[in-house]
């Protein structure tokens, strides 16, 4: 049985990605793992008293987002697992894919202001992901 790894942030932007991952898990009878990566780099340009443990706040939020994704999967009778990591998305995604021995990786690609990668950079990343994990990569645009 293969493993589908779906990187998600939850929320409305990630819904198409999550739905696609769930439907692929149903079709293929694969194990489904949702991944949330805590990323605090948006604070890197702000000079304000960051005395709060931001990473733990985001970890807690990530846990909630993944609980919602699990519920969504459960409605389709898929029992999904969850993984939360902290660090650069690229590194963490590759590492988790290797750990769970993912055969398929489902990724969302938000376009516009909030895109994490530009087009060329994204293609390079997909190449790197495939090379390092040996997994098939499915892109869902949002």
């Amino acid at each position: 049985m293969g493993t589908i790894l779906c990187a998600t942030r939850g929320g409305v932007d990630s819904q198409p990605t999550q739905r696609r991952a769930i439907s692929l898990a149903q079709e293929r009878g694969n194990r489904l793992v949702f991944l949330y990566v805590v990323d605090t780099t948006f604070l890197n340009t702000v000079a304000a008293p960051l005395v709060v443990d931001v990473a733990s706040q985001l970890r807690q939020m990530g846990q909630f987002q993944l609980a919602m994704a699990q519920e969504q999967a459960a409605e389709q009778e898929i029992e999904a697992e969850i993984v939360i990591r902290q660090g650069p998305l690229r590194t963490e995604l590759i590492q988790v894919a290797q750990e769970v021995q993912a055969s398929l990786i489902v990724l969302g690609y938000p376009k516009g202001e909030e895109a994490r990668f530009d087009e060329g950079d994204f293609q390079n990343f997909i190449g790197e992901l495939t090379a390092k994990t040996g997994a098939e990569v499915v892109i869902v645009e949002s």
């Binding site: 998600t8 942030r9 939850g10 929320g11 409305v12 932007d13 990630s14 805590v38 990323d39 948006f42 604070l43 340009t45 702000v46 000079a47 304000a48 985001l58 939020m61 990530g62 987002q65 938000p110 516009g112 202001e113 909030e114």
Partner: peptide, 20 residues
């Protein structure tokens, strides 16, 4: 304001985009 940037960043972390 820094509070605005932080809030928009947190929303983005939860998968909600806020355009300008």
């Amino acid at each position: 304001g820094a509070a605005n940037i932080v809030a928009v960043g947190l929303l983005s972390q939860a998968g909600y985009r806020v355009s300008f």
